[in-house]
Design a binder for these strands. Sequence first.
DNA 1: GTGTTCGCTTGATAAATGTCAATAATTTGA
DNA 2: TCAAATTATTGACATTTATCAAGCGAACAC
Lengths: 232, 232
Amino acid sequence: MRTIDITEVRGLPLFAGMEQENFETLMRGGYVQTFPPQVELITEGDPSDFLHIVTEGSVELFASWNNRETMMATVRPVSTFILAATIKDAPYLMSARTIEKSRLVLLPSLDVRAAFDVDNNFARAVVGELAQCYRAVVKNSKNIKLRTSIERLANYLIRQQKYNGGGAEFELRIEKRRLASYLGMTPENLSRAIKALRSYGVTINGSHVEISDPQDLASLAKPSLLIDDPHH
Amino acid sequence: MRTIDITEVRGLPLFAGMEQENFETLMRGGYVQTFPPQVELITEGDPSDFLHIVTEGSVELFASWNNRETMMATVRPVSTFILAATIKDAPYLMSARTIEKSRLVLLPSLDVRAAFDVDNNFARAVVGELAQCYRAVVKNSKNIKLRTSIERLANYLIRQQKYNGGGAEFELRIEKRRLASYLGMTPENLSRAIKALRSYGVTINGSHVEISDPQDLASLAKPSLLIDDPHH
DNA sequence: GTGTTCGCTTGATAAATGTCAATAATTTGA
DNA sequence: TCAAATTATTGACATTTATCAAGCGAACAC
């Protein structure tokens, strides 16, 4: 394992408080791997053999049922995913695939659970991480149940604008068909929603977004800390 | 606090492994209260002052936005709710109200966090509980994003049937308007969905449900462990 | 470069779901 | 027990969202 990985991983809140010895033990059992785009890393229903950490690239989490598929989340560096399955030793609830060429650290679930058992700081960090994830999914659920697709798109754009520094222009960092799936609609419907937002001062050209009248957009979107703020 | 409460609470997986002394300290700070129906116990956005435990009755968790409201979950005895907010010392993401006359144990969040800091078994139990909650919300999200309203209803009935022992007849233990909100539809739409299920051998009369052909219903519902099994 | 593929957009149409209004059934409370 | 309030159902209709089909355009492979 290259040094840079350990540094990056060590910096994650999840691992920052671990005893050095436990951290090293945990890392010794893990390995780094680079995957091309569109590789299915894990499949829902499979036993959770590894805790995954994305250090480069991006990964999408998605779920399937009855020949339908929906995107649940995008994971960007540096973060872990499927921690809950690893800790509970339960099957994955979501599948994961690389969106682009990506580098991952894989830590055997057994080792993670062992570290969890011996290292109290790690156990506490896991709590923080799980609570965070839980709240993120609850927000997501509220977003989907309480808002129409146009409102979801409007709020997504406002969130992205903030994430990108708040300027009037920024780039969508996601394919539109994935965005549509994430927002719980079809690509066709997203196209139409984008057109509908023109009257609120939003111009989207390819992946380039321009928000000319944030107030106007916000009057439609009505963003809420309890849905849209990832840290709240 | 009456003894029965302590016994019930002590039996919860969350508290079962605690040091007796820590458990007693935690309980000393808490108190028991009985509420009439329709009392709003907590309001989303408020700071999380107490960890709540339902020991009798039932409580619904719901969320609001822009004058709309949706039911997120029903909490029945004996279980806790809003653990994540308590642990993270973050504002509630959901509101809670009693559905019927209910008895609750309220534990000050400060005390819970203190117990979490000193009792490693408790900290580990919190992990288990949070992971469970996280997975429950993920399943819920999949249910809503991947299924139509009729499919959600069909699967709900199958889950309830199993929960009630698997017999052909059982009672809905929830008002239909609440069920509609939980399933992400209007009461009118639920009424029509119920009628639509007649052709799959489902008869619902008031709160009485009869499933005459489980196979037929299952062929529509296509239940999945990864969405419908609470323990998977 | 050029052909092909894939993603995006648009229009037409269909299906799902929501809204409104009226009525029926049920529960609640005096 | 009865009146009032709430909940459930139904019909007519509107809106939202999905589906299908076609065409466009950028990215990619050879």
